[in-house]
Write a protein that binds this DNA or RNA. Structure first.
Lengths: 219, 219
DNA sequence: ACCTGAACACCGTTCAAGT
DNA sequence: ACCTGAACACCGTTCAAGT
């Protein structure tokens, strides 16, 4: 990678995406990116005003990547679910970008493609036009929140995760049965927040879409 | 605050909670906390193995604070909703801790109280015992994801937020109507992810709880 | 026994000086 | 016109040396 002198904005974004994919936890930095490119971090500031702007640009690219493998199939619920799973997978490979996506309103072509597909799916559902913007927003909030939350968990180091699990076990199993009767009864079977995420994602989304469907006006 | 020589773990947690409340964005640091206490950052490492452990302990305290103002009232859905809104408010005052809460399985008394109340509410709903752990988990994932996501947005600086809004506007209004017909049709009425959050939170939660209720076995 | 200071290995960002 | 190097103002964490 090193040895060249000049890098285009596109090449920088490529390298950043690659570094974000391979670097674990929160270890991505402007300086490391510059090192990979064989240049000084200060030269990247000609292409981006800040690290945030750089991350936002890479997040757009991930969105595009997620949309790339998408072909509309099935009914509106299946289409939205497929989109959501594509996003989950793409941001699963770039956990640090999921937070960026959720934090900053996205833009760019990937974002447009995504919005278009979800809106078309909703339109084909039979939902009245005036309800579409709000329904769209709620679906977007749900998906972004779940993806960002899952990605956040995946940036926890194994040691920290195990430490947290141990604390959870103590909290649940060590609870006084007189003060916490329900916890004593059910605690053993409860997953901590970080566990069972894929199933929770699919169920929460499916439940929400089913509920929209149930409230549709008769065809 | 300064001038004293020795600080108990509890006093450190108090000061940390206060600093997290007043410091904006991601500006909390171990060094700043030490400065507030008039001591050196290294001395805090006798009380906590890492910054993460410190944040986790403060998050537990926030949970306790949220549970403090809670009195069970109404049916099971109202009780869970009241708990969720309490949490949302408490972490709204400490946005940086919402991420910690969502990332690490929580423990401590606050966490136990919260779990107990949600479990009791679910039990009183008429849900079969063997479904309670999974229902509990999905509700917890949903609430934690929404709160962390909302808190993440609130750590964006006003300039960055405005920048993001502008990009969103361009993405939506500048879309080619031939390639993005649905976007051209509905874009004007769509809120960006960061907007309309309180309503989205309440609706998504209410929708999920309604759906659990609809699937309850007949009384 | 406890705390302090200094140090290590990092950050994001700016800007004068070089080519 | 573009890049580099050095600098600024920070980080989390460790550990020998002090009291």
């Amino acid at each position: 990678m090193a040895g060249r002198r000049r890098w285009s904005t596109e090449e920088i974004l490529d390298a950043a995406a690659e570094l974000l994919r391979t670097s674990d936890a929160d270890s991505f930095s402007v300086r490391k990116l510059a090192a990979v490119l064989g240049t000084d971090s200060s030269s990247l500031y000609r292409h981006f005003r800040s690290k945030t702007e750089l991350l936002r640009a890479v997040a757009d690219r991930i969105l595009l990547e997620a949309m790339d493998g998408y072909r509309p199939e099935g009914d509106w619920k299946q289409r939205i679910t497929a989109l959501a799973l594509n996003l989950r997978e793409a941001f699963g490979r770039h956990p640090q970008l999921a937070a960026t996506w959720g934090r900053y309103a996205s833009s760019g072509t990937g974002s447009r493609l995504l919005m278009e597909e979800v809106l078309q799916a909703l339109r084909s559902s039979g939902l009245p036009d005036d309800e579409i913007p709000t329904r769209y927003h709620r679906i977007a909030v749900l998906i972004a929140a779940l993806i960002a939350s899952e990605a956040g968990i995946s940036t926890v180091t194994p040691e920290e995760y195990e430490q947290g699990m141990e604390l959870f076990r103590v909290a649940v199993l060590g609870a006084d049965p007189d003060r916490f009767p329900a916890l004593a009864r059910f605690g053993r079977d409860i997953h901590p927040l970080g566990a069972d995420r894929p199933a929770a994602f699919e169920e929460l989304l499916a439940a929400h879409l089913d509920r929209i469907e149930a409230a549709l006006p008769p065809a």
